[in-house]
């Protein structure tokens, strides 16, 4: 079976975006999007754990009995999260400080367990690693964009660089966090449905079909 890498990539970043489409891993998303930089830190940590756990689970998928697969997955994920925590503490103390409580909580981040269950336990090593990478990129992009949006409006800055002296406190509060997330999901859904509609239109025109019949 040939692996369709292009599909894995577009699935991870756009069509099955873990944050905006599947709405998984909401806790760190809401808590850490006050600044764009936090999104990158969290995204990198999650991507690392995703790739490692996907690879290991995919390697062991024929050895793990299906009755105990969930505890086994959680144990594998917890090991890699511990590793990331120790690495960040040494290499990037800033990131360690910012992520704080949310770093150990990557263990219970639904994205990682969901990918382990629905992808890595059914696919080969290379496909699983690619899936981990692009799901991670999708998560990082969504978090960074939301972080930038909230940082620009809430603190008048982006990536810590001050843009202007205009701030709306609402966007840096916890209420603004829920609001921003809601806004991003709604816009994402609007854009993707518009795009798929126009694609369908083009397709039906190419096929010479009656448009009204389809609608």
């Amino acid at each position: 079976m040939k692996t369709n890498f292009k599909k894995i990539a577009t699935d991870g970043v756009i069509t099955q975006n873990p944050t905006l489409k599947l709405v998984l891993g909401t806790c760190p998303t809401l808590a850490l999007t006050t600044m764009a930089m936090n999104g990158i830190y969290m995204g990198l940590a999650v991507t690392f754990v995703l790739i490692c756990s996907n690879v290991l689970i995919s390697l062991l998928r024929k050895l793990i009995p299906s009755q105990v697969r969930i505890p086994a997955f959680v144990l594998i994920i917890a090991t890699f999260v511990t590793l990331v925590r120790l690495l960040l503490d040494k290499l990037l103390p800033d990131a360690y400080e910012v992520l704080g409580l949310y770093l150990p909580l990557i263990v219970v981040n639904c994205i990682i367990l969901a990918r382990a269950e629905s992808f890595a336990s059914k696919n080969g090593v290379i496909a699983s690693a690619t899936d981990g990478l692009f799901m991670g990129i999708g998560f990082t992009l969504a978090l960074t964009l939301m972080g930038a949006f909230r940082e620009i409006l809430g603190a008048g800055a982006v990536f810590g660089i001050t843009l202007w002296n205009f701030q709306i406190g609402f966007f840096s509060s916890s209420a603004g966090s829920f609001f921003t997330y809601a806004l991003f999901i709604a816009i994402f859904s609007l854009v993707s449905s518009t795009i798929s509609k126009s694609k369908r239109k083009k397709l039906s025109r190419l096929n010479g079909e009656n448009l009204t019949a389809e609608v």
Binding site: T82, L86, P104, V108
Partner: peptide, 8 residues
């Protein structure tokens, strides 16, 4: 450092 694994 074992806390995460043990807690879960």
């Amino acid at each position: 450092y074992m806390e995460i694994i043990i807690f879960i």
